[in-house]
């Protein structure tokens, strides 16, 4: 019979992790014993995704595109090698495609398959990106979803939704906010939120 984690605060023994955590530990143990994985590599991966890869990478790319027309042209033409040059490399072999917001068209990214996402540029997706609600509604009623995020677009702006896959992951190049002409690239990067690069926010807006 399975013993359940107890609720008292006097633990005579180590706190029992939740059941799925034990299942993961079991897989790790077996694969390590068979020499199929390197436990140190797992720690390294977790550290990378928790501390070194995140939306700041994407923000740097966007700020650069706002200030360097040649870079922007190259990025929109074929983003994968351009961001690889900056050290943002798709470890799962995916291609990254950058789609540009304009006054005429706002872009929004979803993955209806599971949660494909440009990890090297944005890190691990937030919970809502992985939810059924977002995955279904982003395609069906994108303007309502945008409203939930506090984004209201001018009537003349169309919305295009891009469905990421395991092979192709999209990043939105948001519009540069007005009145930012004097800012440096680093200062501009501060205005670029994660949501603005998914298309559920605008740069310079609430983060």
């Amino acid at each position: 019979m399975r013993r359940m984690p107890h609720d008292d605060h006097d633990h005579p023994h180590a706190l029992l992790p939740p059941e799925p955590a034990l299942r993961v530990k079991a897989l790790e143990t077996i694969l390590t014993r068979k020499g199929l994985i390197d436990p140190a590599a797992l720690d390294e991966l977790i550290d990378t995704y928790e501390n070194r890869i995140g939306p700041k990478n994407g923000a740097r790319v966007v700020a650069r595109a706002w200030t360097d027309p040649e870079f922007k042209a190259a990025l929109l033409a074929d983003a994968t090698p351009v961001v690889a040059d900056l050290g943002y490399y798709g470890r799962q072999g995916e291609h990254m495609v950058v789609v540009e917001n304009t006054p005429e068209q706002h872009n929004m990214v979803v993955c209806t398959l599971c949660s494909c996402y440009p990890w090297p540029l944005l890190g691990i997706p937030p919970g809502w990106y992985k939810s059924d609600a977002y995955r279904a509604r982003a395609v069906r009623e994108p303007r309502k979803v945008l409203a939930d995020f506090g984004v209201t677009l001018p009537k003349g702006t169309s919305v295009r939704v891009w469905d990421s896959t395991a092979e192709v992951r999209y990043l939105v190049l948001p519009m540069r906010p007005d009145g930012t002409e004097g800012l440096s690239e680093d200062e501009l990067a501060e205005l670029v939120t994660r949501d603005s690069m998914i298309g559920t926010g605008l740069a310079g807006g609430p983060s």
């Binding site: 955590a21 977790i46 939930d148 559920t200």
Partner: peptide, 28 residues
Amino acid sequence: MSDCVTHSAPEPVFAEPWHAQVFALTVH
């Protein structure tokens, strides 16, 4: 869709250690 309007709160990359572990195991 309340999930979508609570997005402004800071959130950890992985909510639970085992999420990180099963993710890393799969990527590895």
